[in-house]
Design a protein around this nucleic acid. Sequence first.
RNA 1: GUCCCCGUCGUCUAGCCCGGCCUAGGACACCGCCCUUUCACGGCGAUAACACGGGUUCAAAUCCCGUCGGGGACGCCA
Length: 474
Amino acid sequence: MGGDFLLRIEDTDLDRSETRYEKQLIEDLRWLGLDWDEGPGDPATGTPDKGAHGPYRQSERLGIYAELTERLLAEGKAYRCFCTQEELEAERELAAKEHGPQIYSGRCRALSQATIDENLAAGKPFAVRLKIEDRPLRFHDLVRGEVEFAAETVSDPILVRSASGVSSGVPVYNYVVTIDDALMEITHVIRGDDHISNTPKQVAIYEAFGWPVPEFAHLSTILGADRERLSKRHGATSISTFREMGYLPEALVNYLALLGWGAEDGKTETFTLKELTKAFSLERVTPSPAIFDFDKLNWLNRHYLKLADPARLAALSWGYFGDRLPARDAAPETVQSWFDRMLAVLVPYVDHLDQLPDKAAMIFGFDVEVARADEENATVLAADSARIVLSELATHARAHSGQVTPEVLKAWMNEIKAATKIKGADLFHPVRIALTGSQSGPMFDKLIPLIEEGAALGLGAIGVRERIERFVGV
RNA sequence: GUCCCCGUCGUCUAGCCCGGCCUAGGACACCGCCCUUUCACGGCGAUAACACGGGUUCAAAUCCCGUCGGGGACGCCA
């Protein structure tokens, strides 16, 4: 797909819009690698808008909306509605009782000029509504085909909120997006399918102004594992949460593209952003809702973790260790290089980067009590063979001085095997638990040097011999 | 309640528009085997789906109708 990408800030809700939301949104888009061709500038730094369709904040476009509303009113395509909240509420209740459609009756449509003037003079607050013409409202949807709503099922939409006095209030979202989409020459309106029922109203607005109706594409909802709409309960809901968890943006983008879309060959699943912009097509988007699957996201993230540049991973990962490590730019070169090698060993064991400190506990942060408390470890340790293996191990460790290399450990284990006839998992598991506190993990010849080096660097890591001593209790 | 959208393996999907090539393809997860003196990674393999009922047709996952199920909208929120 090609085209221009304009960023517009929709901040017509006075109460809900705050600059920090705008900042967050922009930060999220940047992180995902989505860059726009046109968009708002930053008043704080004096950066001007970029593009010829500005301003890009709806709060800065109020004058445009007001002018267009006057035009609609003058042409009789919109009207003032003096109904109060209570009156509208009563209408709705009545409709519900009679099993009819819950739409506005349109009773202010036919107010006489005299009544209108009277109300205006009395300072009665009014909203502006669009007059829905009595003909079917149709639009073309790239993912669903032709969609049609009968006029009698569509309520006269509020365009501008009421306000007391002469000045009209703030226009509503459905109205201003339509205006902005038209004025900004948006050709494709792509959004969630919860907007489908807003669309006929927007089509009516395009028609009232005599503007061409754009293409629509309504994407299906993303559901949680319980088939409910994705929400806080399901874990991560905001882009920044995924970032904080240590997901790579390319993994998220790739996964999201796969939710509701399949490549033309029906097989390819991994795409870079660049490949996606070429391969993606709205026509191939599926209309049915999709359930968000963390397993598959994790698989993709592991895939991109393997491909990622080590220096980039180091920069991304360092922060997860908090005060267990010195600040990265203050850390000695020896520590940085040790960290890099540790990452190379550990990253294949995680789904996302925030799991790293937990995995790194086997290298630094070793704790005998925690290791013993683990239920599965305790089961392994309870076996007679495990006791024998550990006591033999301790004997070797006591007799040894200096650093323990993988070769030394290997020799010990071979001797234990020969002396006790204990082998395989029965031999390996107790040793691994005593050394790392875990039954699984990288090969010893990768792990041991990292442990010994970590201990030598004074990062709170305990060396191999001391681990054995503490564990067996000399 | 009214209107709208949706319904292929547990999950994401290919196929559906242009019926036969579909004894329904791929991926994730699960399970098994191999590799590993452990576990994971990796490699190999297996299980697993056209919501249901009618109709059209020589032939239907594909076209038509109905039923059921799920979701959304019904706001002077976005």
